[in-house]
Every structure is written in C-alpha cells, then in structure tokens.
Simulated assay, not measured.
Amino acid sequence: MIDQGRARWQRGERFSCGSGCAVLGDEGSADEAVRLADLAAMRLLDHPGDAEQYLRQALSFGANALPAEHLARLSSQLVMVMSGQPGREAELAAAAQEAAARWAGISEADTVHLTFVAARALHRAGQHSEAAVAFAGPIGAGEAPYPPAEMALVFGQYGRSLKLLGRHREAARQFIEGARLVQHDPARMELQAELAWSAAAALDSCGEDDQAQVVYRRAARLWGELGQVSKRARCLRSAAWLDYWSSPAESEGPAAMRGLLDELEQLERAAPSAEIQIELTHTRRQLADMLEQ
C-alpha cells in the first residue's frame, strides 16, 4: 500500500476534477485549482520553483472546492517538489505534516510515509524534540513501510535525536533495532557497525556498562571485518575501560588493552601506516593510565 501511495504523487500525475468538485465549492475556484495543478505537473521536474508556486496557489483555490483526496494529492506533490531543495528542512517538515493530515482517513500508507518524511526533515533541521515526537507515532505503532536498510536509517535518525535530547536508553533501543534489521545484509555491514557503535555509546551513557561492553565488542568485530582499524581500536578500548571500572581489582581490562596492543603491533609490522601509529600511541598511553590507576 505504501508503494502505491507514494507512486501516485511521485509521478506528478495530472488529474481532472470531475463532477464532484462543484458540489464541494465554487465551480470557478475548482476549475482554477485544476488548471494550476496541471501547470504544476508539467513543471515538476524542470522548473520546481514554478511547480511549487502553482501547487500552493492550487491548494489555496481548491481549499473549499476540491475533494479531500485531490487536495491530499496536491499536498503530496508539494512535498515532493520541496524535498529536492536543500536548506528548507523546516518548511519541508511543515508541508509533510500538513500532507499527512490531509491523507488521514483516506490512505494510511500515505499518512505514515509523510509522517516519516516530516520526522526525518525535522531531524536534519536540528529540531530534535519535534523530530522525536514525529518519529514516535509510526514507530510506536510498529509501522515499517520501507525496506529494511531504509528503516535502519530511520531508526538511526530517531536514535540520534533521542540521544541529543539526553534520552540515552531510548536511543540505544532504536540503534539496536536498526542494526538488527541489516544484520544479515553484507552490503550494509558498515551501517550495522555504525548503529552498533552508537548503541554501545548510548548504553555507556546511561550506565548499562555490561551491555555496553558486549555491544562495543560486536561493533569492533564488524569494524575489523571492514578493515577499519581506528574504529575497531576505539571500540575495544572503550570496552576495556568499562570492564576495568566495573571492578578494578579483578578487571580483565588491562589484558584486553594488551591484546589490542599486540594486534596493532602485528599490523604495524605487516603494513606500517600513520593510522596504526596513532592507534598504537593511544593504546599504549591508555594501558599505562590503566595500570597506574
């Protein structure tokens, strides 16, 4: 249903008002709204600025003259036009929220999709409190209208907004769910690693040390498979410190730090690089700090 709903307005369909328009309002306003909508449809791809102006005028003329579904389609086309213009995230979010409201009771698929469009635009605009509210509706209802990889990105954005609001435990849940969605997709291993690392950091921030250690190590394994030496080393050092602080006298943190140091030294002997040198320096210093404490 989502794909059908999105396809209608992504094609920029021209439509005829039909006999139902005059019933809902002034016939002249309806005819003018349809004329403007057709002009917009012809300019969607080549002249988006003109298309946006025509669509806004069509919505104004048709507000009390066009059937609800026609107004909803026009609102969706306006969202499509605005989504291709960078730097207008807050305006895009407002337009998407209005379009979602117009589809309510007509097409649940379009309502959900446009709510996510609004939430993601708010996230990109840095309006994280508003973004979290917008994400919470469809995600809390279990809506997953996109393929797993795209939904993983949605969960990641929701998680980052929550983390920036200081809601670390909730953020961790979103990151973990996003990573779960792509865990069996080799093409998305980097996305899985980023989400796992974000989840570990969020768990670390809310005092879930044991779980954070597990997830840091999972992220480290993924970064290792991707050949990302620095990111793997950072995850392993974080896990070692969490282990150390949980019980300094009995900690395996120093052993874990030494294991990482051995791994880096082997890599340095096999293929020297500035990146490995930097990680060796950090690891030696942090091992010394740990032993001193």
Rank of each mutant, 00 (worst) to 15 (best):
T281R: 13
A219F: 08
S107Q: 12
A202R: 02
T115S: 09
G259H: 11
L153A: 10
Q213K: 08
L36R: 15
G156F: 09
G84H: 01
P186E: 14
H282P: 00
S75W: 03
M42K: 15
S251P: 02
D38Y: 01
R102G: 00
L59W: 07
P145D: 03
Q53H: 13
T281H: 10
S76W: 07
A196T: 12
V117M: 09
R11V: 10
L260S: 04
S75K: 13
L222A: 14
P248D: 11
K231P: 00
Q127L: 14
R6Y: 04
E252I: 03
R221G: 10
V229G: 00
D31S: 15
I106K: 09
A118L: 03
A136H: 05
Q183C: 11
P86V: 02
A100D: 07
G20W: 07
S83D: 04
L55C: 11
P147R: 12
L261I: 12
A220D: 08
E263D: 15
R188I: 01
A134F: 03
Y158H: 12
Q192D: 01
F175H: 13
R269D: 11
R169A: 11
E52K: 12
L195Q: 05
A101D: 09
W245G: 00
Q211M: 04
A274D: 15
R8G: 00
E27H: 08
A171W: 11
A171Q: 06
H70A: 14
E252V: 04
A121E: 02
E91D: 14
A199V: 05
A7Y: 01
G166P: 06
